[in-house]
């Protein structure tokens, strides 16, 4: 019953963002990530923040999904913030107590790095929230297909992703069940030092692996029964088509990117 995971979850809908070709969305995501990394100052971050809000609005995704996509990351975010806070050197001392020193530069840097991570996570979750897993893997497969000439296994990789996405909830439920079965036999996952805890996971991990192998075996048999024989000669129920809106969206985002590059270069 681990339902509070938004990462990789799909929210079916019919918004403008949903209807974009998955290839466009993947490419735009690359541009967006580039934007987030190009930005070097906190003020310029205003642009990707606005962009993000606009994307959420256009996709009709409730703001609660934004927060729940960040929830699994909260410790990492906190960790990033603290590390940057104390690892950055600066001159403008805000606070000092014994050897602990807090500078304005460090505070800005910590806020900046944390914001960057938030923007990355929230941006990618827009992609997965508005794109069905199969559209996502189809898009990836198509984008990677020119590489097939170099014997790059584009179809196989996409199929692996499809299956992985399909089995995440199944394996999570299974983990929960095995963990409970071992707890019922007196297993303790909560006490002891880090080594004892790692060791206590063996009774969960072994059955989980055994079961994953069994599932893989059965799935392979089911796929073979349904005439799966690799990507050769395969058709798709949903064909991918570029539309005007794909072009529009791409141009818009490229403009934003150009704008940011220029802004960064300007001596503000």
């Amino acid at each position: 019953m681990n339902a509070n995971i938004t990462l990789g979850q799909f929210l079916p809908g019919d918004s403008a963002v949903h209807r974009l070709d998955p290839r466009t969305k993947i490419l735009l995501m690359v541009v967006y990530i580039a934007i987030v990394f190009v930005v070097k100052s906190l003020t310029v971050f205003l642009l990707p923040v606005v962009l993000l809000v606009v994307m959420f609005a256009f996709a009709h995704v409730p703001a609660s999904y934004f927060f729940s996509s960040l929830k699994p990351m909260r410790w990492l975010l906190a960790f990033m913030f603290v590390i940057n806070l104390f690892a950055t050197t600066g001159d403008t001392i805000l606070f000092q107590w014994k050897f602990i020193r807090l500078t304005q530069e460090a505070l800005l840097q910590a806020a900046f790095m944390t914001l960057r991570l938030i923007l990355l996570v929230a941006g990618t979750s827009i992609l997965t929230l508005t794109t069905s897993p199969i559209a996502l893997t189809d898009g990836l497969e198509k984008l990677m297909s020119p590489l097939r000439k170099l014997h790059f296994p584009a179809h196989e990789l996409a199929m692996m992703m499809t299956i992985a996405l399909r089995f995440i909830p199944t394996l999570m439920e299974e983990t929960d069940r095995i963990q409970k079965a071992q707890m019922a036999r007196g297993a303790d996952f909560e006490s002891g030092n880090i080594f004892q805890r790692a060791k206590s996971m063996i009774p969960v991990l072994v059955p989980l692996f055994v079961s994953a192998f069994r599932r893989a075996d059965e799935l392979a048999m089911a796929m073979e029964s349904r005439c799966y024989h690799g990507g050769e000669g395969r058709t798709r129920m949903r064909e991918l088509h570029f539309h005007w809106r794909d072009l529009t969206a791409t141009l818009l985002l490229l403009l934003v990117l150009a704008g940011i590059v220029v802004w960064e270069k300007l001596p503000l």
Binding site: E174, R177, I178, K180, A181, Q182, A184, R185, I202, P203, V206, P207, V210, S211
Partner: peptide
């Protein structure tokens, strides 16, 4: 549990 054989390790 159901299918307890899946807890053998």
């Amino acid at each position: 549990f159901q299918y307890p054989e899946y807890q053998l390790f």
